[in-house]
Structures are given as C-alpha cells and as structure tokens.
Design a protein around this nucleic acid. Structure first.
Lengths: 155, 155
DNA sequence: GATTTGCTGGGCAACCTGCCTAGCCATTCC
DNA sequence: GGAATGGCTAGGCAGGTTGCCCAGCAAATC
C-alpha cells in the first residue's frame, strides 16, 4: 500500500520531464513498458498521483504578489466563511487550523496596492472577526514533493 | 502578453482532463489543432504554464498531517536557514515574508507525534530563534488556479 | 507442490505528435 | 491605397506512442 523505489523513480522522472510518456519512462527506468504502465496506473488508482494538471504561475498572468492571511472566525460561521472565500478567485487555497477557530489562506494580487482590495474582499464578510496578513517576499523553496517521495520509498 | 479567453479555456480543459492531448483539446475548443498547439506553446514559453508534473498527495504516501510553521530568524542567517530547510524532505515549501525576518513553511508528517520530530529537525538549527506551528485540520479549498485564470482572461 | 502476483518481451491497430504547406482575414505600417 | 505581418483554418505525412493482448518466467504465498 506504500510506495517503493521504482515508484519513486517513476514519479521523479515524470516530475522532471512530464512530457516523456510511459514508453520513454520505462526505457529510462530499465523496465518493461508494461511494468511502468502498471505502476503508473496503480499510483493513479491509489491517489498517490492526483493528476497531471498544468501548473500555472500566478505571476505570469498578472498576479505577482503572494500573501498569507490568518483569519479569526466567529463561532459557527465556518461553513459560511468557507463558501465566501471559495468565491474569491484570488484565494488560492484555504486551510482550517488548530486554535481559535482560525483559518489560513493563500492570496495573490496584482500589486501591493491591489492586495488591499483583495484583503478587503476577503475580510468584508460577516463572520470574520480579525485578519492578519503577511506578504511573501521570496520563495526559496517552491512547492516540491520529490524529496518526500524519495523518503517515503525507503520503507 | 496577458491571457485571453481561449487560453483560459485551454488551461481549464487541461486542468480537468490532463491526459487529453492537444488534438482532443482543439476539438473541444472548436479550433484548429495548430491553434491549440500554438497557444499551448506560447503559454509554456511565457511561463504561464510551468509544466505538467504529477501532483503527488502526501497523505497517500504516508504523510497525512500538514502544518504551517512561522520561523523567526536571526539577523543574517537567512541563507543558512534556507539551505537547512531545503534539506528537510518534510518541508514542502518555504517563503520569506515581511516582518521580523520571518519565514513561513509548510510541513508534513506521518502523524501528530511524528510532527514533533519534524519540527525538532526544522528548528534544531543555529539561526532559528523561535518557531510557532499551526496544524491544518481541513483543507476546504485545495490549491486551485482556475478561478484566477478565468479572471485574468477578462482583460 | 500449487497458486498467485508481478515482470518481461513481443505484437498489433489506432491514434497522436511534430512539422510543414497553403489559403484566408484583419490589423498595422509605409 | 497597397503591402506586410500575425493569427487562424484545413490538410498531409512520417514516426512515435498508446491501449490492449498474449505467453513465459521467477519469486513469494498458501
């Protein structure tokens, strides 16, 4: 039910050069095509690989500013706040966290000035008590899974 | 240099069904294959689409716990802390933020108990003054770009 | 010892990709 | 006005890939 070294190498390979396809991957891994095919099918079936969606860079479409906002929610307003935030395109993701009924969300904006508009829209909602925002300056480690995948394969 | 409606629909289509390929996409969009091809090439060249890497679900490979840690860094230790964190597989991403020389990082762990080990490893480094961690309970809005892409197309 | 599971190596038709051509149309430039 | 440019359509072609199938084999399991 876990993941082995072959799986990890497959994922790694696909992460580096997503366009190669199963056949080429099997060649590089030194296994039969059927094997690579079967592994990939299994990884998809198990949900290890969710899909191969295009990774869009918000900066490249005019949203170079990223920020994280911590929201304090009024008791029992969780569901409403969620659907409100889900309706804001600039909210890229939303997590509910431990603590004071808090949420953490990732925002993007067209500029620092525009961020104000986004934040106003985010917090302009009955049920959000308080919000604190931190702006991202750099992203030294962009979202990555490969090191984790490698580690997971050692079991 | 921006993005138009056709681009947005293309991205949307590829996000929903990444395996369809250019030909099928062009059919569904009602344009010639060459057009879809050219659009996709341009999106890739411009960096709007970074790639089509596999989206791996950490939970499915044994890391169901997600947390965010805010780190306070000692003056001038930024670069060292970065490379330290880059070496920890459980650190999925790292941002430097405004404020007190802070960083924000996303962590995963095998369990709540295991999270302690991860945090110890993260903060067990000369240069990190303080760390505060919040555990993610739910993820009502998983990372998404489509709404933003649609909005960006309206310009 | 018998069965199951996973891998290999190969084959086949259908399909897609990368690349190219030619014509068309609208916008832009001289 | 007239020409050039850029983006789209429509089609063709060779080569590679996919999806699917089979038989043989080895190791692990019962």
């Amino acid at each position: 039910m876990g993941i082995d070294r072959l799986d990890a190498r497959l994922i790694e390979l696909l992460a580096e050069e997503p366009r190669i396809g199963v056949l080429e991957a099997s060649r590089r891994l030194g296994v039969a095509r059927g094997t690579a095919q079967a592994r990939l099918d299994r990884l998809l079936a198990q949900g290890v690989i969710r899909g191969f969606g295009p990774e869009v860079d918000p900066a490249a479409i005019g949203y170079p500013v990223t920020a994280f906002a911590t929201l304090e929610i009024k008791q029992g307003q969780g569901p409403d706040v969620r659907s409100h935030l889900a309706g804001v395109p600039e909210v890229l993701e939303l997590h509910t966290t431990t603590g004071h009924g808090d949420m953490l969300c990732r925002l993007v904006a067209r500029s620092n000035a525009d961020l104000q508009r986004v934040i106003d829209r985010v917090v302009g909602f009955e049920g959000i008590v308080r919000a604190s925002t931190t702006i991202v300056m750099e992203n030294p480690v962009p979202l990555r899974m490969i090191p984790l995948v490698k580690q997971a394969a050692e079991d």
